[in-house]
Design a protein around this nucleic acid. Structure first.
Length: 581
DNA sequence: AATATGATCAACCGCAAGAGC
DNA sequence: AGCTCTTGCGGTTGATCATAT
């Protein structure tokens, strides 16, 4: 029998081969193009599954597991290549807050992405954040089980050999539970599973005022005990209430008045209006993809937010929180019996029973996602377990709003720049935001941090062109044009000391206020890169803003609805939604 | 230019669950 | 019920590349 690939690859020098049952030396290490072709041809002909037969039938000197992995991660159709989009990153964070290290489930929510990709991304992010002593999650996303620690996990945490700071952050923002196997692991994180992951039906995001503080704030409790012993201050007024322009009504968002919170004996109440679905302008991320040649180009994205990473992520987190689709379960705020009873929590009931499959995915993750709307068959030959096969985790381009609601330009940009230099950009998130905010705060509260190293700045735009089409970018990313040309990069120590000096400012309210303030006078991002602004983005962002201020935005929405509906059928305004009329 | 460090990716491993007998 | 096989999942590791020093 001809053995393909056996001992052939030059890059495979270090790998050790082993014998299959038939005495065939099976190759390990990187796959060659020839091997790929053999495997792909086999799967095209025979479908997925029965991987051990590949070696027997094709002579491919690879074990079944290796074949399956290679197919699933590299060869199967519809795989997305390239870095994660901003939406995908946020979704990963949300999903990880929910599911823990359930990469396969997360991958099921990210069409075209593999569990391995997600795992790699998360571990990279995790490593980076832990090294910087930053929390893993935006403070407004606290899995329910964190507030009710599972004894088993507490025990598991005692065995965690990571440093105390890491433990603190895990306790602070992530208290995973493992209801499944618990094998000892040296993973940065224990293998967490939400308490009811397998039968997952309800998941609660707890929004605690305490966690609206900056992670570096000494006011931020580090342990659950601290949390429980420190009653949170009264709920903040809306962070969307601009200090400059108070004409807009305060939107309660998660911070509802006590009277609203406590008016239900059972501690739960149904949120009268769901939180707005607000995505950061997708053009923001398209812009990122235009920065292929910019070192540290990630900064161009993440640094553009003039507010803290906590707030930014807090913001984006709930912005991407779902509103209930007409068919979705009711989003309910639970005033749980926890020390934060004064603070509402946001409970979402993603699905009724079995969570994991793509067809029963949480509605809140993609409330527009209608599996039935997608019929995509890559190859009729692939007959095995069609619904569960990784290759059927196809992009839900039309329906998967949070992830795939991009314009053609953005997709194109993504595709064009989906390799190489963009890898770095994909993983920049919280940390860089911390730097940015620190710099902003250190600059005197005016939020005009010095330009980051290697940042290519374009001339600032101070035209206050509020109806500039680029202002859709300002929704989150503004003020890079304010950066001066200094070439300093704060050290972490400097950063922290500066953070301490400006703790007073670190509230979500102020951050968002800054956001609005900045957004109004900062013009476009000045990162030296051309902006990509599409009609989709503009319309979407108008809707996003409009949904924040519904009383003032009817006209705006009306003016844009037509085009919006033409361009983007997957987003709706508040008024389009059932249950809020 | 050389080296160190960090980030990313691909692939492997062990374990567990499920199916079939 | 127990065994074997297959598959899938999560953790880990090594190679490679990019960037910083």
């Amino acid at each position: 029998m001809i053995m393909y690939g056996g001992g052939g690859a030059g890059k495979d020098g270090g790998s050790t081969n082993h014998l299959s049952d038939g005495g065939v030396i099976l190759k390990k290490g990187p796959w060659t193009a020839a091997e790929d072709e053999i495997l792909a041809a086999y799967v095209r002909e025979n479908g997925e599954g029965n991987w051990n037969a590949v070696q027997k039938n094709t002579g491919l000197a690879r074990c079944g597991k290796s074949c399956r992995l290679r197919w699933a991660n590299h060869l199967r159709p519809n795989l997305k290549k390239g870095s994660f989009t901003g939406d995908e990153e946020r979704l990963i964070i949300q999903l990880h807050a929910q599911l823990g290290n359930k990469w396969a489930r997360m991958a099921a929510q990210l069409p075209g992405r593999t569990d391995n990709e997600i795992k790699n991304y998360w571990n990279t992010r995790l490593k980076r954040l832990l090294r910087q002593g930053l929390p893993l999650y935006p403070p407004d996303i606290i899995p329910n089980h964190q507030l009710h620690p599972h004894p088993h996990h507490q025990q598991q945490q005692q065995h965690n050999h990571h440093h105390q700071q890491q433990q603190q952050h895990q306790q602070m923002y992530f208290q995973p539970q493992s209801s499944q196997r618990n094998t000892p692991s040296s993973s940065p994180l224990p293998s967490p599973t939400p308490a009811n992951a397998n039968s997952s039906s309800s998941f609660t995001f707890h929004t605690t005022t305490a966690n609206l503080l900056h992670p570096l704030s000494p006011h931020t409790p580090n342990t659950p005990s601290q949390l429980s012993s420190t009653p949170p201050p009264p709920p903040l007024s809306s962070p969307l209430c601009s200090p400059r322009n108070n004409q807009y009504p305060t939107l309660p968002l998660f911070a509802l008045p006590r009277s609203q919170i406590n008016n239900n004996n059972n501690g739960n109440f149904t949120f009268p209006r769901p939180p707005p679905l607000l995505q950061p302008p997708s053009s923001l991320f398209a812009k990122r993809y235009n920065n292929a040649n910019t070192p540290l180009n990630c900064i161009n994205r993440v640094s553009t937010a003039p507010f803290s990473p906590v707030s930014r992520d807090s913001y984006t987190s709930f912005l991407t929180l779902p509103y209930p689709s007409p068919t979705a379960q009711t989003a309910t705020y639970h005033n749980t019996n926890n020390p934060y009873s004064s603070s509402p929590s946001f409970s979402l009931n993603p699905s009724s029973s079995s969570y994991p499959t793509s067809t029963s995915s949480p509605s809140f993750l993609h409330s527009h996602y209608t599996p039935s709307s997608t019929s995509f068959h890559t190859n009729p030959v692939y007959s095995m377990k069609q619904e569960q096969l990784p290759s059927n985790q196809i992009p839900q381009i039309d329906g998967f709003n949070n992830v795939n609601n991009f314009t053609d330009n953005e997709r194109q940009n993504h595709n064009l720049n989906s390799s190489g230099a963009h890898r770095r950009s994909s993983s920049c998130s919280l940390l860089e935001d911390v730097f940015e905010e620190a710099e902003a705060l250190a600059s005197g509260g005016r939020g005009r941090p010095p330009k980051r190293r290697q940042l290519t700045a374009s001339p600032p735009n101070h035209n206050n062109n509020t109806n500039n089409t680029n202002n859709n970018d300002n929704f989150f990313s503004v003020s890079f044009g304010h950066y001066d040309s200094s070439d300093n990069l704060c050290s972490l120590q400097d950063l922290k000391s500066k953070e301490e000096e400006s703790l007073q400012m670190n509230t979500m309210q102020e951050d968002i206020a800054k956001l609005l303030d900045w957004g109004s006078d900062s013009g476009e991002i000045s990162n030296g890169q051309s902006s990509v602004v599409t009609d989709d983005n503009l319309v979407l962002d108008v809707h996003q803003l409009a949904s924040l201020f519904p009383a003032d935005s009817t006209a705006v929405v009306a003016a844009t609805n037509d085009q919006h509906n033409k361009n983007n059928n997957n987003n709706c305004s508040w008024d389009d939604m059932q249950g809020i009329r």
